[in-house]
Computed example of a mutant assay.
Amino acid sequence: MKRGGEYARDSRYLTTRITADGRDGFPVEPGRYRLVVSRACPWASRAVIVRRLLGLEQALPMAIAGPTHDQRSWTFDLDPGGRDPVLGVERLQEAYFARDPGYDRGITVPAIVDVPTGEVVTNDYAQITIDMSLEWTAYHREGAPALYPPALRPEIDAVNETVYGDVNNGVYRAGFSGSQESYAAAYERLFNRLDLLSRRLEGSRYLVGDTITEADVRLFTTLVRFDAVYHGHFKCNRQKLSEMPVLWAYARDLFQTPGFGDTVDFDHIKRHYYMVHRDINPTGIVPVGPDLSNWLTPHDRAALGGRPFGDGKPPEAVAPDEAVPAGHTPLA
């Protein structure tokens, strides 16, 4: 927390990279690493979506932590015996301490763990998805989309920078504000940016170019949590997403696109925010609503043109062992 009650995110990440040439000591190798995520976390959800869109499920196996955690760490309470079956640990914290016994930063997801050593390689979520696009190309599925095409990278980077500051992190700046003044500033900044994004998307199906890119993934993970969590829990309540026609249609378009909505677990999302943030929600009561069936209503965005996967094609159906449980999504 900064002076004046402004929320400040700890951005000290492990920035080691897994690359095709192994220049940081960690070469891309199928099956060597384990992507640890929680479906509750928007930063981890980016990695889940990109991995699925690119078809990296076999090359980069995934571990799913439970939706809640304590001050120590995310836990593998969804797995039999409460341990990840590959890493053999109960808490993600153990992989961070294997890398650095004195580690004193956030135990965050997504994190990529080197299975042979049990050590976290990186938790630099922004770079993780870029490297999935650029460094893991040998293992992309046939028909995988170009999420970070060279010609569009400057524009994607510029959009991502403003979306991160004002929207992705903006909802947290509002929700965790320590003063009325800092909350009001974050609130205004958030909705000003959402208004600008609405105008940008009025005549364009996607944020940059005519296909899905990294920019759409990053905005989507905040939008999909907006009505279920951020509107009430984080006091981002000028309007619900479902009351912002352009962004609501845009979000539904992505949700109904293979690779997006089929990774979203609304049950985990709500349990995480409402049960973990006891300073905001002391009772830990998880709301029953909202009604999620409206995510499947027609969006009519195809009339704007655009090709979701460019010259490629949608991913195959989700593997049964990675499917979101029935009742946790309107798609089930």
Results as ranks from 00 to 15, higher is better:
141 R>P: 14
95 A>I: 06
296 L>C: 10
63 A>H: 07
78 L>W: 09
244 M>A: 12
294 N>R: 14
6 E>L: 09
282 P>A: 03
205 R>P: 14
119 E>M: 15
319 A>E: 15
172 Y>N: 08
180 Q>A: 15
272 H>Q: 05
226 F>H: 03
188 E>C: 11
278 R>K: 11
259 G>F: 14
307 R>A: 15
243 E>M: 06
308 P>R: 05
63 A>E: 10
277 H>K: 06
229 V>W: 01
165 G>C: 07
34 R>Q: 09
303 A>G: 12
327 G>E: 09
105 R>L: 10
136 W>R: 13
232 G>P: 01
326 A>W: 00
318 V>Q: 02
326 A>T: 09
204 S>C: 11
106 G>R: 11
214 E>Y: 05
207 L>G: 13
204 S>Q: 14
36 V>F: 03
74 W>M: 03
262 D>Q: 14
326 A>D: 13
70 D>M: 06
8 A>L: 14
269 I>W: 01
187 Y>D: 11
71 Q>N: 14
219 L>G: 04
112 I>M: 06
140 H>A: 13
331 L>C: 12
83 R>W: 05
284 G>P: 08
98 A>T: 15
25 G>N: 09
55 G>N: 12
293 S>H: 00
164 Y>N: 13
32 R>D: 04
168 N>V: 03
289 G>A: 03
285 I>E: 07
75 T>K: 08
